[in-house]
Every structure is written in C-alpha cells, then in structure tokens.
C-alpha cells in the first residue's frame, strides 16, 4: 500500500471562541482557558459586489478558513486543487427553501436555489480566488472531516500535488435543528503538500491509516462538547496535536465506529 503522507503547510480555523490558528493554539493546548463565544465570520475579499451580497454564513466560513490557510502557507489559492468537506452544507438556506415550498406560492429566488448546492462554497471559492483548478465537494455525515482528509491526502500522494482541504459546518435553524442539532459554525482548512519538497511553512507531517480504535476525545469539557456536536470539529484532536507539536497518533471519527488514525510528526 502507498504511504498516505502529507505535509501541513497552512492551517485556518474559525469556530465558537476560535478566531484563526495562531490565536487558537494556546486554547487548544490548555495554556489559556477556552471560552465558547459566537463564531465571528466576515465577508471575504475577492468577490464581485453582487456575489458578496449573496453569501450565507456557511460560505463565509469556508472561504474564511481557506484564505487563512493559504495565506499562512504562502500559497497562491488560484493554483491549489481543493476538497470541500461538509456534512450537510447550508442548513439555513435549506430551511428557507423547504419553508417556501410548503406555502402555496412556492416562490424560490434564483440566488437561493443556486446557493442550495452542496458545492456552493467550492463555487464561490473558485470565483473569489480565480482558481480553475479541480475542486471536490464531499460529505460523509459525521465522518465528513476524516473522509475529506482521506480524499485530500490521497490526492496529494497519487497526483503529487498540493491540495487545500476545507471542512466546515454551520448551525441548523429550527425546526431542522431538532433533527440535526449542529449548534454553531466551525471550519478548519489545511494546505496539504507532498512530502519531500522543501517548505519553510511546514507545521507537521501527517500519515494516515485505518484503525479499529474509537475516536480520541478532547480533555477540556467545552472543547469535547464542540468536537462531538459539529462534524468539522471532529478535527480537534488532530489540531491539538499540531498545536502542541509532539509526535503522536490521533484517531479521528470515521465510518462504522472505526477511525482514521493520523500519525502526527512535528515540523522540527
């Protein structure tokens, strides 16, 4: 079997009380108290005004972490293949459509409809960055982060190319929330590159395999609650290891109660 290994060259992170990778490492490591607060999202640059007005929170989240990661990696976003992994895309937009369809007039705006595609974030990313590179939009329900990581690292290894992974999920409004209780917006982005190329930006090396072990949990109760409630936040044990920069194997939630084991080698 080919060794599934990639080097992390950039990380982006947005979530409740988490605003960027650099300012979040102390919280992840437990050197500063983690206090959940509403996720702060801003409208990214690079889009025409008409497109900027159309962005939902999910797309702002995905573009926000993607741009953080490519900036940290010093990578031109227009040149990177990308994998966008989300459990269910834009729950708010879906709610608005289903609500409209339950009324007699059934009026859906064209914008609401084209924003309903699961690959909306990938589309806006391509428009905002001018990227014509291949991008994928994938889902594996609660395993979406691990499945996206697997998809991205496989692409890095097989095609020997740099890949941006963006994993993101945002809150579902009522009444859908009762059926899919995702409480807040959380997104993480990793610029992943083939090993062996010199990189000043390397934040660590990841080697993936399948494992029968259950997923690792976070020691901090609030971070563990975040991990368990948002599919993209299943990445937190991996982000913790990248923050503390110690060699370790972390297990991330995958399918059938199994996990994807990620061996983290610090950058040094």
């Amino acid at each position: 079997m080919v060794k599934l290994v990639a080097q992390v060259e950039g990380i982006g992170l947005l979530g409740p009380g988490l605003d960027g990778w650099t300012s979040s490492t102390a919280l992840l490591e437990g050197r500063a108290p983690y206090i959940p607060q509403a996720t702060v999202l801003s409208t990214p640059d690079g889009l025409p005004p008409a497109e900027r007005r159309r962005l939902g929170r999910v797309v702002k989240l995905a573009l926000g972490v993607g741009l953080q990661a490519t900036s940290k990696a010093g990578a031109d976003p227009a040149t990177l293949a990308a994998v966008f992994a989300s459990s269910g895309g834009d729950g708010q937009n879906c709610h608005e459509i289903c609500q409209a369809l339950s009324l007699d007039e059934r009026l859906i705006s064209p914008t609401r409809f084209h924003n309903s595609v699961h690959n909306a974030a990938a589309g806006y990313w391509s428009i905002a960055t001018g990227s014509r590179a291949a991008s994928n939009a994938v889902s594996a329900y609660d395993a979406s982060f691990a499945a996206g990581l697997l998809e991205a690292v496989t692409q890095v290894v097989v095609d020997q190319t740099r890949v941006l992974l963006v994993a993101y999920d945002a809150e579902y409004p009522p009444p859908l929330f009762v059926k899919r209780p995702i409480p807040e917006a959380f997104g993480v982005a990793l610029v992943l590159a083939p090993v062996g190329r010199p990189s000043e930006a390397s934040l660590g090396r990841l080697t993936l395999s399948f494992s029968d072990s259950p997923a690792d949990r976070m020691r901090d109760a609030a971070l563990e609650s975040l991990r368990a409630s948002i599919p993209a936040a299943r990445s937190l044990p991996l982000l913790y290891q990248l923050a503390v920069q110690r060699r370790a194997v972390v297990n991330i939630d995958y399918l059938d109660g199994r996990s994807v084991a990620v061996e983290v080698d610090p950058c040094a």
Binding site: G89, V117, H118, N119, A122, A134, S135, N136, A137, V138, S139, A140, A147, L150, E151, F210, L255
Partner: peptide, 19 residues
Amino acid sequence: GPAIVVCSACSSSAKVFGS
C-alpha cells in the same frame, strides 16, 4: 470500505470516478 458522497451538483457522479 471507505465511502464518500460527492455532491457537486451536475458533475457529482462523473467526479466519483476520480475519487
């Protein structure tokens, strides 16, 4: 085995061949 859904609108089930 591994599983994934590609949900990229009307290119979805062509792109699965790539994955």
